[in-house]
């Protein structure tokens, strides 16, 4: 069995996930990046997107969290993800995410200029939530 790293996904209000993982894949600032055990020390910002990990706490399974930006610290034996919001599959309100996505996409399509950055972020966040909620059979 491969060496394990310790993954923590932490929001200001709670620890969303904590446990051993074989690999963690996160949307880093410079593209998605995977972290195995013994990764070189790294500190990166995260884009809004989906964090995936294969965790091994007794049984091997995959987990996914939609994260709304944040920071990730990778050390040889642990990965720490700090984010304002992290939602697992069961926590996503699919209807709300769809509505948000539709509204933001329309806003982007109709008015150029304006507050495009905020809308683009909202699109990404809605997309991330839907990705987590709707991926079949993880």
């Amino acid at each position: 069995m491969a060496a394990l790293t310790h993954l923590s996904i932490i929001t200001p209000g709670s620890v969303k996930f904590e446990g051993s993982a074989e690999i963690v894949v996160a949307p880093g600032a410079a593209g998605d990046l995977g972290a195995l055990a013994n990764h070189a020390p790294l500190l990166t910002t995260l884009r809004t997107g989906v964090v995936r990990a294969t965790v091994a706490d007794g049984t091997t399974r995959r987990i996914e969290y939609a994260v709304d930006g944040g920071l990730m610290q990778v050390l040889p034996d642990k990965v720490i993800i700090l984010t304002d919001l992290a939602l697992a599959r069961g926590e996503v309100d699919v209807e709300e995410a769809r509505r948000d996505l539709k509204r933001s996409e329309e806003a982007l399509a109709h008015k150029r200029g304006g507050d495009d950055d905020a809308e683009r972020k909202a699109v990404a966040w809605a997309q991330a939530r839907l990705d987590v909620a709707q991926r079949p059979g993880v």
């Binding site: 600032a29 410079a30 990046l33 020390p41 790294l42 500190l43 910002t45």
Partner: peptide, 16 residues
Amino acid sequence: NSFEFEPDVGGVLAAL
């Protein structure tokens, strides 16, 4: 001192 920063130290600081 061996930490790598992405995108760079300034970028991470600005987010953190």
